[in-house]
């Protein structure tokens, strides 16, 4: 399977997916750590991909959704943005609601 197809399958596999450096338990970048913590603070489950464990994904993800940086967060297969956007959404109160909607849509 070609790497773009593989990434598409990953983002399709769960309502909320974060591509990060490291894992939520052992993050290897401050921005990835904060994004994962912010998602976790809602109490809603999410999937993650450690880009350091897959060089092909690491190299090709920026062109997948034309987004140059990590972490990247997807709701319902669509890029929501990077870590700064997740933090802004938590601050303005929209994050939990948007995550709940994503889960509902995925299950429905």
């Amino acid at each position: 399977m070609d790497v773009m197809e593989r990434i598409q399958k990953q983002v399709d596999s769960a309502p909320i997916v974060i591509y990060m450096k490291g894992t939520p338990q052992f993050p290897q970048c401050g921005f990835s750590a904060r994004a994962a913590q912010t998602l976790a603070s809602t109490g809603i489950e999410f999937a993650y991909v450690n880009v350091f464990e897959d060089q092909e994904v690491f190299q090709n993800l920026p062109s997948f959704a034309d987004w140059p940086t990590f972490p990247q967060i997807y709701f319902n297969s669509e890029l929501v943005g990077g870590g700064d956007i997740i933090v802004e959404m938590a601050e303005n109160g929209s994050l939990k609601e948007e995550m709940e909607k994503a889960v509902e849509k995925f299950n429905g």
Partner: peptide
């Protein structure tokens, strides 16, 4: 604006 997080480690990656 929110404060930036600190990095973990010094490698450029």
């Amino acid at each position: 604006a929110p404060d930036s997080p600190l990095c973990h480690g010094g490698s450029k990656s």
